[in-house]
Design a protein around this nucleic acid. Structure first.
Lengths: 140, 140
DNA sequence: TCAACAGTTGCATAGTTGTGCAATTGAATG
DNA sequence: CATTCAATTGCACAACTATGCAACTGTTGA
């Protein structure tokens, strides 16, 4: 993979000065793992449910109308990213949100998502469909 | 799919009182789309690069050591979630972050991710591996 | 100790996603 | 107008992910 045989514009047109990432690659990898775990509607719904308090697997299964197995799998993913924690309570295992942090993330995402009804790319050609206050038209 | 034939514990043991979600299902769907878009290391790296300023596709391809096609695909996904915007500048198309919002999300995720080195679930049995300040040991 | 119940896990399968290649669009330039 | 370069897209394929089922672990209570 990766040939990079075409770095034409980078080298000539604007003499690239950009290379250092603002953060470590590892940190980004972990962050993406986190996002991936939350990047599933069903799993995110579980987080939303748990935001109201702890719940056991079968309870969540009943609410979500899914099998216990499926819910368990979803929770496993969330747990692997430390989004939820579990604790045994008698016969059940109660899951809870790992911390408030998690909800902040979800709410931030929803704030962004609700800004606009989300478009499918390819609708407009190139000219920005949004009237920006900065019509800077620089030309070579 | 979904049988829900086993809501045993929900109905009996703790007489479920939880059902309303704190947010609309739609909002969660959109948020999960957003997270999914960011849930890929390569795409997240692009966001990190763009946080330093706009860049064109071939420039990003050179930095990432990938084909232009691949980068273009990744940007397409990011654009579909309005995480980046594009603007034609002469021969190139410059991509930028859609807004600061996006970076907040990334940084929050990294903050969460860097709290601990991330475990693989299944390591410890059930008893919480973290010494919590709330050792409430309730027992039936 | 055995039965019942709560959860987890292994496995097979279906569906989704990422990538490369080749063809195409579209703008700029000779 | 043809050429060149930037970028996108269609297609096929590989890799990954989610799900259901069945088997299994582990706990409670008779």
């Amino acid at each position: 993979m990766s040939s990079a045989s075409q770095l034409a514009c980078a080298a000539r047109d604007h003499a690239s000065a950009r290379r250092a990432l603002p953060v470590s690659r590892e940190a980004l990898d972990r962050a993406s793992d986190l996002f991936r775990a939350m990047g599933d509607t069903a799993r995110l719904r579980l987080l939303a449910l748990l935001s109201q308090g702890p719940a056991c697997v079968s309870e969540l299964a009943a609410i979500e109308n899914e099998t216990v197995s499926t819910i368990s799998q979803r929770l496993r993913v969330l747990r692997s990213e430390r989004l939820v924690t579990r604790r045994r309570d008698g016969k059940h295992i109660n899951y809870s949100l790992a911390d408030q942090h998690v909800l902040d993330l979800v709410f931030s995402a929803m704030a962004h998502a609700s800004e606009l009804p989300a478009q499918t790319p390819g609708a407009a050609s190139i000219p920005e469909p949004e009237p920006e206050p900065e019509p800077e038209k620089e030309q070579s």
